[in-house]
Design a protein around this nucleic acid. Structure first.
Lengths: 334, 334
DNA sequence: TTGTAAGCGTTATCAG
DNA sequence: CTGATAACGCTTACAA
């Protein structure tokens, strides 16, 4: 790595002259500027970012802490984050909490010692359950945090959330009112998360508002979830619609229904949660709730970048990104 | 952010005393050590990592540059990378090239100015096609690079590759020899990538070795790929097996076949490329080639960490991770 | 046992 | 127009 000092020696000028010349300062004469920049290019000089960071006490790096990258929703959000940060000359360092509280804490403490200017987080499942949130309290005093999707009400920071309750409420109501469905099954495998609870409650409200019965299956992947769904459907022939509240069980439900030789959407309508590939891997194409992960990521990082740019402390806001019901082929035509 | 200097002032000792005390140096007396650590804890002192990095000219950060995170294969690899790096006290900053040469170059130059100790890359599609690889040549002189999956033969560095040719060759041969298939269709949507070419060639070799005819569909997502597959199958009723060489078209093929009321695997066997969710979103469960993304990520980062740890320059190696044929329900029982 | 000072690579202030 | 110097926060010879 070639440094200012080496350039200075080779050119027989001082370090500060080189520095100024390279930043095109008006203090430096055109002739020297040219000499300097030419040698710098030749030797492929790049200012050492670590040194700049130390000097400016700004890293231009954002710490992103997510539970997983193999969940397509988070992958999508991270993609949105990357795009916006890139446009604002920020890099990101990603830590994966793996839904573990301890891993999340470690990541935070590691990054909080000057490595990043701010954080974007979706809190780990274990953190939500145990509700051990000291690390957020500590950090939020020093560096701005933006939380998305899985947020903590008791932490004072900017938040970007999905209107989980209303989204599922409306999807359920759609099935009842527009498709005249009366026996709607909800399939859930994220019951313990706050977002999961909101979604279930949205479903319940819509169903109860129409004086219908709730039908809920809670899955977890250990068992054989497709069998469970199939058995349930066989035992409950009255089911005429399914709502799945995560990105995978909707497709599983669709496959189960097909296996029972029921017609979709004639006999049973299905609405799942969408992700980038869901329409490619389902047939007929799954009707989905699109959570707009990309936009969520963009908004979260824009808020963070803006916060870092403005000196005055503005009050914390919670922005809501409205999910969109995308009617494809597993619901009847509108 | 509390610094050594502040601690020193508060304790009426010198900065170096504080520094040594905190690193439990034998030079410092127990009494002062105690005073120092207590105040440090109280004030939540964390050494500024940027300063440490400048001092040691080591960042303990690895730059990871991948084409996409929404491709589950890369998400899996990144997960493997994160795990291994975490175990070795490294962080990672991720850049997404989005398959763009220019974005890839920018990422490299940005990170190469001291921000990271080394790189892990899968090269962008555009880079492979245009074969503009100057940025790799430049960087590889200063920082170690490990390439995975999409590698560049002309760059001298460590590599972790998948045996694409043999994997598909063997899968095809399996269909021919064990399942007695004679009309095998290959579906591809990554023809232009080197890995895609290898896979196609593996297929061709197996087919031709048995004096069978090759049948290939090239897809791209703009058109309506499922229709294309369906039409092809309808026009070619003799097809009795399908190999798909990416993570998504295998499931598409399965759905198309079912739509034509053919039985899987009785009438048609299908083998796709697997990813974490493929068995959950297919029914019957797709038989897949498992590329072992997680292991690839682990190995790539282990190699990089080892390289950084050892002073002597060892020769560059190319390691091969053997993919595994996982026979599920879309092939006949072995 | 503790303190002083130099240095990592930059930038910025101030003199020359 | 150019150069010396200090500072960012830390580590580490070397002195005391």
């Amino acid at each position: 790595m070639v440094t200012l000092k080496e350039l200075a020696k080779l050119l027989n000028v001082s370090v500060s002259t080189v520095s100024k010349a390279l930043s095109d300062s008006s203090e430096i004469g055109e002739a020297t500027k040219k000499r300097v920049t030419e040698l710098a290019n030749e030797l492929n000089y790049k200012p050492n970012r670590i040194a700049q960071q130390l000097k400016s006490s700004e890293t231009k790096v954002i710490g992103v802490v997510v539970p997983s990258l193999m969940n397509p929703f988070f992958a999508e959000v991270v993609h949105g984050i990357e795009t916006t940060l890139g446009n604002n000359n920020y890099d990101m360092t990603i830590c994966i909490s793996n839904e573990s509280l301890e891993k999340e804490q470690r990541s935070f403490y590691l990054l909080s010692s000057g490595s990043v200017d701010g954080f974007i987080v979706a809190v780990a499942r274990e953190t939500q359950i145990k509700y051990d949130i000291k690390h957020f309290e500590t950090i939020s005093k020093n560096a701005p945090i933006v939380m998305f999707d899985r947020v903590l009400n008791d932490i004072d920071c900017n938040k970007v959330v999905v209107d989980d309750f209303n989204t599922v409420f409306e999807a359920t109501r759609y099935l009842i009112q527009k498709e005249n469905r009366k026996h709607i099954l909800l399939i859930s495998n994220i019951e313990e998360l706050s977002v999961g609870k909101h979604r279930v409650n949205g479903y319940k409200k819509a169903v109860e508002e129409h004086n219908l019965k709730t039908n809920i299956i809670k899955l977890d992947r250990e068992e054989s979830p497709d069998e469970l769904i199939k058995n349930y459907l066989q035992a409950h022939q009255e089911i005429d619609a399914i709502i799945s509240i995560d990105h995978i069980t909707g497709i599983m439900a669709l496959n189960s229904v097909k296996a029972l030789s029921k017609n979709v959407p004639e006999d049973i309508s299905i609405i799942g949660f969408g992700y980038v590939d869901s329409e490619y891997v389902s047939s007929p194409k799954l009707s989905v709730i699109n959570q707009k992960g990309f936009q969520i990521g963009q908004l979260a990082s824009q808020i963070l970048v803006d916060t870092l740019a403005s000196a005055e402390k503005v009050n914390f806001k919670t922005e809501m990104i409205k999910s969109e019901l995308e009617l494809n082929e597993t619901t009847k035509k509108a």
